[in-house]
């Protein structure tokens, strides 16, 4: 048996582009996640402070990290999809 994917897909001209923006988006998210962890370790009492609609920083930051992950994912998918479509159009 050859060592190939379970289902074949052709060469991907957008692979480098997708990897590049993926790394930048990952670094952006990692930085915000690191900030969340850092506040908890260095200034834990900040997390008690009410910041928005009666919610404290811990809840807003925590929910924010979850929502931001989805927003970034959708932007990433849009950029990848557009690039893939452009490359297909050019082929």
């Amino acid at each position: 048996m050859l060592h190939e994917p379970a289902s074949q897909s052709g060469p991907d001209a957008s692979a480098d582009y997708k990897m590049r923006i993926g790394v930048w988006m990952f670094l952006l998210y990692a930085a915000i996640y690191a900030a969340f962890v850092a506040i908890n370790l260095l200034k834990p009492l900040w997390m008690e402070k009410t910041v928005f609609l009666g919610l404290n920083l811990a809840v807003v930051f925590g929910f924010g990290l979850i929502v931001f992950a989805l927003i970034e994912a959708l932007i990433y998918n849009h950029m990848c999809g557009t690039h893939e479509a452009d490359n297909k159009g050019g082929e």
Binding site: E4, G22, I66, A69
Partner: peptide
């Protein structure tokens, strides 16, 4: 307890931006 929720979800960012497509391209099963 919610820290686990945050951490587990954040892990998917690594999966999406870094791992998903290369894993699919390189692997078989």
């Amino acid at each position: 307890g919610f820290l686990y929720s945050i951490g587990y979800l954040a892990g998917w960012i690594v999966a999406l931006f870094v791992v998903a497509e290369p894993m699919k391209r390189l692997g078989k099963y």
